[in-house]
Write a protein that binds this DNA or RNA. Structure first.
Lengths: 240, 240
DNA sequence: CGAGACATTGAGTAGGTTCAAAGACCGTGG
DNA sequence: CCACGGTCTTTGAACCTACTCAATGTCTCG
């Protein structure tokens, strides 16, 4: 990369998700044009980011925070179909409509692209399209894993799987502790009812299973929203 | 397309999935090179197509029949994570390992490509990659819809949703009846226990719900594996 | 300190599972 | 052609996991 660009790239080069986001597929000139069309947006915990019947107007990468995506039934039942962590991306490329809700589960910062500009970039930079394809394939595998959880796991297995996922995903980004180690204390940005909506359970059941895991010495809570995995091995085993 | 190619393309041009499969993104020369590396394979109902811990060696399009993909737990629990109908595609592009089982749910014909050749084609023909990306995004939306079903629908809603899906997918391909009409009689290629594994229910529950839908006059059975949707409106409504 | 949102806990219930037995279907071979 | 065996399906009864309803406890923030 030449010095001319480096200076202008500023924010992108030091961006925390630079190594993991879609933009990782770009460098130099490409990253610069990408940056031209990027706009940062901030959301407070609880803010609606996309409503289910919106036209899709933008595509975004999560820079910080956690975004929850969900389907909502007409009678109020709700299913969370995915959590987006930093470096994950949001928005339905090549689709006219967005089929689900997206809501900030904590304070969130997004790196947004106007949809048609983003799709233009995909045409111009094959590496970016390749990256999006691979990410989408990974998302599909993850969604199918979660289908197995929803269809066939018991409440205890579901709750254990959730905390396992959280421990794994919090590691890689939240406090940048390198070698894949679990950070001691994990911050839980979802409330009990949201965990229930993610796992296909009621919040009371989630409560009881959390208690049970604590009694077994697998989890340890320092407050209602902060915990530590005490016995990673057992947690993994219980989660199936 | 020039006459030179047309002659050689034979089978591809008359292929029943020509208008819906990935190959729809190709024409002329491109389709010809695609055909060069394609091999048809036939499976009998019940045959294993991919085992969960296989290295991925090929990518395929379903030409006829239905393929079921599933996750299997170590204790035997099973979750079907997707059914593949004609024109759907099978196999994990850009992944070293295949994360699920695939089994012929009826007699099946596949149009197979050796994985690395297929990935080569994706590089050579951007239209093909675009098509794969769009298909993957659609698959992801479908998987997320199914997550909502698994997590939040009742047994009755699940079973109704299943027959609705079947009615919709059987229409477009099975007997080529044009205008989106539901064919009268639908052939059920899954047994009750497989329907259960798809919906996260036991086969006994599936049985009881089928009976209930029949008693309500929504479905009509001509044999254990052949039925007709009698009241499409009610079925849609029950399915949520 | 008080209000409101969130979390915990208990008791009773129900939807779906489990277990068990009988019935239907299909291909095979006598 | 029919009897036989195996697999799949249906149905019933008992049970249990997770849900519902309700009351109480805890945290946070103005």
């Amino acid at each position: 990369m030449d010095a001319f660009n480096t200076a202008e790239l500023g924010r992108c080069l030091t961006c925390i998700i630079r190594d993991h986001g879609l933009c990782n597929a770009l460098s130099g000139e490409q990253l610069l044009s990408f940056k031209q069309i990027a706009r940062r947006r901030h959301y407070k915990s609880g803010d609606l980011i996309l409503s289910g019947d919106d036209k899709v107007t933008f595509i975004a990468g999560v820079v910080s925070g956690i975004v929850k995506m969900s389907k909502i039934f007409s009678d109020g039942r709700q299913q969370i179909i995915g959590l987006l962590f930093p470096s994950d991306s949001l928005g339905r490329t090549f689709g006219a409509h967005n089929p689900y809700f997206a809501e900030a589960a904590s304070d969130v910062e997004l790196c947004c692209f106007e949809k048609s500009s983003f799709e233009g970039m995909l045409e111009d930079f094959p590496g970016l399209k390749q990256r999006l394809l691979e990410q989408t394939l990974d998302d599909l595998d993850a969604a199918r894993d979660w289908m197995a959880l929803l269809g066939r796991k018991t409440a205890e297995e579901k709750v254990a799987s959730f905390f396992l996922l959280l421990a794994q995903r919090s590691t890689s980004t939240e406090q940048g502790c390198g070698g894949g180690l679990t950070p001691d204390i994990i911050n839980l940005s979802l409330k009990r009812s949201e965990i229930g909506d993610y796992l296909g359970l009621t919040y009371e059941t989630v409560c009881r299973q959390i208690r049970s895991l604590s009694e077994q010495g697998v989890l340890e809570w320092t407050s209602k929203r902060r915990f530590r995995v005490r016995d990673f091995e057992s947690l993994t085993e219980i989660a199936q």
